[in-house]
Structures are given as structure tokens and as C-alpha cells.
Design a protein around this nucleic acid. Sequence first.
DNA 1: ATCTGTTTCGAACATCTGTTCTAATAATCC
DNA 2: GGATTATTAGAACAGATGTTCGAAACAGAT
Lengths: 218, 218
Amino acid sequence: MGEKLTQRQQAVLDAIRDLRAAKDLPPTLREIAEAVGLKSVASAKYQIDQLKAMGYLEQRDNISRGISLNDMDDSNGSVQAGNQGTQGNNVVSGNFKSYPLLGKIAAGIPLLAQENIDDHITLPESLVGKGDIFLLKVKGESMIDAAIMDGDIIAVRQQATAENNDIVAALVDDSATVKVFKQTDGHTWLLPRNPAFEPILGDHAQIMGKVTAVLRSV
Amino acid sequence: MGEKLTQRQQAVLDAIRDLRAAKDLPPTLREIAEAVGLKSVASAKYQIDQLKAMGYLEQRDNISRGISLNDMDDSNGSVQAGNQGTQGNNVVSGNFKSYPLLGKIAAGIPLLAQENIDDHITLPESLVGKGDIFLLKVKGESMIDAAIMDGDIIAVRQQATAENNDIVAALVDDSATVKVFKQTDGHTWLLPRNPAFEPILGDHAQIMGKVTAVLRSV
DNA sequence: ATCTGTTTCGAACATCTGTTCTAATAATCC
DNA sequence: GGATTATTAGAACAGATGTTCGAAACAGAT
């Protein structure tokens, strides 16, 4: 079983792991086929059979979603010199979670209360980071020089305070805003990253959290 | 949902938890029916519907083994409307696919050949759009005014041509670059969105595709 | 090119699985 | 007891899912 994995096989294994994490449920053959770009279920099954024969996974007969991965990380001999480097820089893999997308913030209600939640989006945790994360849709161009555009979705890690130059989401007059956090001689400022906008005095603002990711669909 | 559970309901919940633990897979309605001693699938479904209405579990429509228990720790009886942001129960929305992250582009080789693929990332299709999508890691600041930073990951929909003002990924001298596509009087230009960079004559460039999404971890 | 082995596809099929209906049974209340 | 509700059962159906087969597409070697 020490064989080297083809790119397709690696993609299938990655897809199984990610899909399982994303939905908290092992994928079906069709889901695998679609995720990997195979147009036939039979092709997915073919790949599964190969990987099964190589010992990379198990599949229970005739059981829906009966695929389970076998942990065979490294330590396996016969690792050819070939593709070792590719696995190192895993940008995203593994943990997926469902994050709430906040809509209009209602005054006097806990941030993550049902009333504030518009939707849920499942994303890789490695993309948005650990902690209590929620999502916000950016309105306006005040942060354009920080490469955050109108309509972008930002991930925010909940925290009551921040450090200088952090990009934070804050609640000012019951509406959420994204700005750069800056504290000087006793005052808190929320700075835009756009010359056309004015800094906001943030002494009475409530820091929602720190921006940990930016997502944009164009 | 403060109702008291009947014996049968408790048995169903226990069975779901036990079966899931035993096989590392949520049970089907028939498996539940057998475990609890119900002779009809419909009876199991009836119980599931009850528990679902009471909020003890979720079930995804028409998805096999789509039952997941809701953590409602009875430790505190006063469960007010403002439920904590229990991240656990997903409202998983949309299709997930595994997309290849391209690394260094090798000359004369099809874009999506094995040699070019560094990794795979599974993302919601709704984020990156439909079509043949691949991912690229952005290097450099040439698109900063389009809110694309160094280190961002972009999703690219493969297509050989583009329309004016599209943001495209193109292959120039065997290296990938992200620019704005512009065609004027017989010439193709690849325009940066940063005054510090010069336009590139793209007549001999190969258009890889159009940028459909931008992802950034900060 | 031809051969050979691998991979993909499409379709048909069998089975698993969720859904919906009706009727029968059990439990509860008056 | 009778009436009402809750629960179970059965069957038929629809959809999801795994399996199998043959042909086609593909890649690599001869």
C-alpha cells in the first residue's frame, strides 16, 4: 500500500475529509464525484475502490455514506521523494464550521441572538480562525484602502477590546461599522482607510471583535 | 420546548446517540425503528418529527442519515429566547466542492495538470460560483486598488477570453498574474490597479480565466 | 501509428432511505 | 362506556445511494 497517490486520488481523499467536516457527515459517492469534478458516480466508485484496495479508506457494503478514512499519515515507508512538499502548505483542510451571518443589529440584544442572525455559512475554520466567529456584510467604502470593499463578507472574532491598528467591527449607535482601532491619550478612535472619510471617536463604541478574514464574490 | 420527554422519545434520543457512537455514523430511520422496537419506519419518523418540533434534533430533508442531535444541556431549566450562539447545529447551506490550488505554473503544461496543483480546498460553491474553478495565491500589490492584496487567494473560472474590465488571471511568460482585461484597437492590455505598476501588453498572454472570488485570512 | 492498461462516462439496475397516506391500535379524558 | 387524541403499523411511493456493465476516452509504451 505504499504506492504513491495520484493527484486525483489525493483530491478524492481531501474531498472526503473536507466534506465530512463541512457537513458533519461522510459524503455519498455522488457528492464526492461532484466535489472532485467527476461526471459519473461510477468514476467516483472507481476511485474509491482503488483507495480501498490501497488501504486508505474503508467502505461498508451497501451502506449509504459508509466511507471512512483510514489514518495513514506519514510513518509509512516507501514514500517516494516525489510529492512530499505538496502537502506541507495546507492552506485549508479539515475543520469546517457553520458561522452566523449577522444582519441588522438590534439594540440591547446580545450580538448572536436569533434576532440578529440572517443566515449561516459553513467555512473552513482555518480560513476564519479559531474563537467565537461571526460574519458581517460590509457596507460602504470606508475601508477600501485596506482592501475591504462594499459587499464583502468579513469574519469577526468576538472580543471586547483590541490592539492598535487592528481592523475591528464596532457598534456605533446600534449600527455595525468596520474600522481600524487606535487608542491615543485616553481616547479611542475608529479610523477609516479611505481619505474621503473622517475618523470616528470611539469612546462610546462597543467593540464587537477583530476582523480575521475577508470574503468576496465578484 | 420545556416539555417532558416520554419514555419512547428518550429511547429514540438514546438510540440515535448510541447508534451514532457505535458506527460513527448517524442512523437511518429504519435503524432507529429497529433499535427502539418500532415495527414501522413511519413510526420512527413520527417520533423524529415530534422531537424535531421540540427542538431536540435536526433533520436535513431527503438526506440519508441526516439526523443530528441538538445539545440542550438541561443544567439550567430557564432557557430563554436568547439561546447562546451554539455553533454546533449547522444550517449547512449549499454545495461544497473541492477546488485545486495552483502553485507554480509549469510551462507548456495544461493548467490543471498534476504538476501545477499544490493543494485542494473545499469551499461552498455559492462563494466561488459555477464553472471550472481553480484557486491562485496572489503575489504582489499590483491590484491593491481592486482590493486584492498580496497573499489573497482568488478563485478563477476557467475561460479563454474575457470582457473589458474583467479581472482576469493570465499567463505571461509562464507565470500567473492578475490584472484587469482591456481590449483596444486590436491590442490586449493587462492593466494593474496600482499607479506604481505599468500596464502589460497582453497580446501574447494566455487568459486563464476570470476572477470570481477573493479570500483573505488576516 | 498500434497496443495496452488506466480512467472516465453513461446508463441501467438494485437497494437503501425518507415521505406520505390510510387504517388500526393504544392511551387519555369526559 | 364513548369520544378524542396520541401512537403504531402497513403499504405504496419517491428520491437518494451503491453497484455493475460496456463503451469510450486517455495516457504511456512499443
